[in-house]
Every structure is written in C-alpha cells, then in structure tokens.
C-alpha cells in the first residue's frame, strides 16, 4: 500500500473506531465500516486536513470506499 494509502487507513481507523484489518481498498465507509452520513462528512474533512487539499462536495460524493479516497488523494494531495 502506498504511503497515502497508509495515512488514509490510519484516519479511517481513528475516526470510525474499526479494526485496521477491515480497512481494505474495497471497504465501503457506510456499508462495511459502520459510518453514517455525518461520519463521512467528518472523514472528508480529516482527509483535507491531513493532505492539505480541498475536496469539493461533488468529488466528496464519489468517495465511497477506502480505495476511492486513496485514489483521489494520490492525485490531489498537497502534503
């Protein structure tokens, strides 16, 4: 897993309080990791904070899995 993937995973584990081994690329935040709609808003904010980038609402709506987040951030991360 890329460095960005590891950092994404760490944030997801912290915010959703889930086992690290469940945080795999195709895991859906809502269906597999127990997040609700507010959790996903907060996750996106945490990604923005960690990676120094802005994630517009229309992009945020396409980030449904751990892999989606990693892919988006590999392209857009500024830090």
């Amino acid at each position: 897993m890329s460095d960005i993937g590891e950092r994404v995973k760490k944030i997801v584990v912290e915010h959703l309080g889930v086992e690290p081994e469940k945080v795999v690329d195709n895991a859906s935040f809502i269906d597999d990791l127990g997040a609700d709609s507010l959790d996903t808003v907060e996750l996106v904010m945490a990604f923005e904070e960690e990676f120094g980038c802005e994630i517009p609402d229309d992009a945020a709506e396409t980030i449904l899995t751990v892999g989606d987040a990693t892919k988006f951030l590999e392209k857009n991360a500024k830090s």
Binding site: L38, V41, E42, M45, E48, E49, E54
Partner: peptide, 10 residues
C-alpha cells in the same frame, strides 16, 4: 467554516 465538524451541533 469548512473546519467545523458535522458533530458540532448534535
């Protein structure tokens, strides 16, 4: 405002 948590109000 973009840094205000969705959990702030509830």
């Amino acid at each position: 405002p973009r840094r205000v948590s969705p959990f702030f109000i509830p």
